[in-house]
């Protein structure tokens, strides 16, 4: 004959209540869904940002359209001529920029064009791009730069 021992148990529950966990997770999920900007494009040109002191933040990322300017990446550690990239494609004819930007402007009237240009590129191409933007009436632009680490440097 065996004796059955009664299991001792505390009067209170010892578990952390997990009923609200889905709610918390959903809240986080919604936060990240809202802040995410999907589809980071693949860069086909090299862009090393320049630094500047008097910079401002662009709060509304959804208004921004990027133009990348820099030497074309040909392979590891190998770069070619300076090219212009908008979205996924390299633009060979600068004259096409006007049409592309005019289309974007109809979709987003408050468009900001952010120019991400390699620090070693020459400004001639920038002047051409700006002329195109003026013709397309996309007048709000932004030179993408990083914060200067040492203020007063240079």
């Amino acid at each position: 004959m065996s004796i059955h021992f009664k299991k001792k148990s505390a009067g209170t529950k010892q578990e952390v209540p997990t009923a609200s966990m889905p709610d918390i997770v959903f809240m986080l999920l919604i936060f990240f869904m809202v802040t995410t900007v999907l589809r980071e494009i693949e860069l086909q040109v090299r862009v090393n940002y320049t630094q500047a002191e008097n910079i401002e933040k662009i709060e509304q990322k959804r208004l921004v359209s990027y133009i990348y300017v820099g030497p074309e990446k040909l392979g590891p550690n190998q770069v070619g001529e300076t090219k212009v990239q908008i979205d996924d494609a390299i633009i060979d004819d600068i004259g096409e920029i006007q049409g592309i930007m005019a289309d974007k402007l109809t979709d987003q009237p408050k468009l900001i064009v952010s120019i991400r240009m390699d620090e070693d590129s020459e400004t001639g191409i920038l002047t051409d791009i700006q002329e195109e933007l003026r013709d397309a009436n996309a007048l709000r632009i932004n030179y993408s730069t990083k914060q200067e680490t040492q203020p007063g440097g240079n």
Binding site: I55, K57, R134, N137, S144
Partner: peptide, 13 residues
């Protein structure tokens, strides 16, 4: 990452 840069408004064509 926050985008930073120098803002500018171009004169109209």
């Amino acid at each position: 990452d926050v985008d930073t840069g120098i803002g500018l408004v171009l004169p109209p064509a």
